[in-house]
Nucleic acid binder design. Structure first.
Length: 414
DNA sequence: CAACTTCCTCCTCT
DNA sequence: AAGAGGAGGAAGT
């Protein structure tokens, strides 16, 4: 097993309204973070394992390096593993970069709320959601995997990719941590077949072909040259970007168009990469959830924009950019997260379910556009059912420990 | 262009 | 118990 050196825990003052890792790391923009303990998150990043905890006033962080890491070039001055060259540790800078901590999020929320009544209504229970500055290649791969897929399985696929093709950083608590594979690592002649065997389905071909295009066809640095110059790679200097327009800045539009040339990359995936990997805050990825939001809350879904065509896609992005401005993608991700099933319990006070159901039913204010696909209604009803069931289960367990377990819940029980 | 179909697999519901 | 349907889409026709 790899020898590691674990740095000490350090802390950075940050409020939960500026950053909430428990939401930000689970809302479907990154797929590699794992809960490594009670309220502890870990991920291999930039040649180290980064572990995080958060309390209301601070983000606590710790890096764990492999013994012979190229990221800490200076020779060890002490033999004690925990004392080695902490002055060379750039983890704080990495965190500020990765979590995109420069923008004042509370201020942005206020701005979005004052411009948009719907945001004002939905956002208060979903504070601290930031757009991460992920590696562009990692974002590209993750979102190619995301087509016709859900977060849980995307995470599984990305993990398989890292295990089989990414460099091992080390183990913590017998859990292996691999960094993300390079594009080159996915260009081997049997990669596509192997990925199919690993359960990637038709995405296997996309990943292989895209890896070849990135590693061989396009020149070195092609992907990163599509970055927002105001939001450069970790360690690089910022340069000004262009002027904002309805369709976004020139650099954003160029990046979006260029990305469409890659296999498995359509408008939605291109915008995910633009927003979360290339630093273009005005990118608005429109997936089925955002499409539902646009119909339910922003009067899309009828007339000219009755179906999600390319024209409708662009119109939704333009609408949101006009409403929220240069960081429209950030605001969009807040509403998106509020709409996710995983987080929908927050819309409900766990104590009084019946009341909440009434409230939600009376919630059909917004112009009562019921073309909103009964999918949404069905889903909401389903959520309500589940909430009621969850509550019942919780009550049962706490009171009598009955064994009313459905088959799917008995995973690993015996 | 818009509309429709196919592509893989896993999970859920019926 | 088996089968249909859906899931943060994209590409081909």
């Amino acid at each position: 097993m790899t020898v590691l050196r674990t740095m000490e825990w350090k802390k950075l003052p940050v409020s939960l309204t500026e950053l909430c890792i428990n939401t930000t790391l689970r809302c479907g923009q990154s797929f590699r973070w794992r809960k490594s303990g009670e309220d502890e998150w870990s991920c291999a990043l930039h040649g180290r394992i980064l572990s995080l905890r958060q309390d209301p006033s601070h983000l606590h962080y710790r890096a764990t390096y492999p013994k012979s890491s190229s990221y800490l070039p200076s020779p060890p001055r002490s033999t004690a593993a925990s004392e080695q060259a902490p002055e060379d540790d750039d983890t704080l800078d990495l965190i500020k970069h990765y979590f995109n901590l420069s923008p004042n999020l509370s201020q942005l929320y206020e701005q979005w709320a004052s411009a948009d009544q719907n945001f004002k209504k939905k956002a208060p229970k979903f504070t601290g959601i930031r757009i991460l500055k992920q590696d562009a290649w990692e974002a590209l791969v993750g979102f190619i995997c995301s087509s016709n897929n859900n977060i849980a399985r995307i995470s599984q696929m990305v993990e398989k990719l890292c295990i089989h093709y990414g460099p091992l950083i080390g183990h913590i608590d017998s859990q292996a941590y691999h960094d993300f594979p390079t594009p080159q690592a996915l260009t081997g002649p049997r990669v596509e077949q192997h990925l199919r065997e690993l359960g990637f389905g038709y995405r296997a071909k996309y990943l292989y072909q895209t890896a070849v295009m990135i590693a061989q066809d396009k020149g070195a640095g092609w992907l990163d040259n599509l970055r927002n110059p105001e939001s450069p790679k970790f360690g690089d200097k910022a340069r000004p970007a262009g002027q904002m327009e309805e369709g976004g800045r020139d650099g954003y539009r160029t990046a979006h168009e260029e990305l469409l040339a890659l296999q498995g990359v359509g408008p939605k995936v291109a915008d995910c990469v633009c927003l979360m990997g290339l630093g273009w805050g005005e990118a608005v990825p429109v997936d089925t959830h955002v499409w539902q939001i646009a119909q339910r809350d922003y009067k899309f879904g009828k007339g000219k924009h009755s179906s999600l065509t390319k024209a409708t896609y662009d119109a939704i992005g333009n609408k949101f950019r006009g409403l929220w401005g240069e960081e429209a993608g950030w605001a969009q991700s807040v509403l998106f997260t509020a709409n996710l099933r995983t987080f929908s319990e927050r819309l409900v006070a766990k104590t009084e379910i019946s009341e909440v159901i009434k409230e939600e039913d009376a919630d059909g204010d917004d112009a009562s556009e019921v073309t909103v696909a009964r999918k949404v209604e069905v889903r909401e009803k389903k959520v309500k059912r589940e909430l009621v069931e969850d509550e019942h289960q919780a009550l049962e367990v706490s009171s009598t420990t009955k064994r009313r377990r459905t088959t799917r819940n008995s995973l690993g029980a015996f």
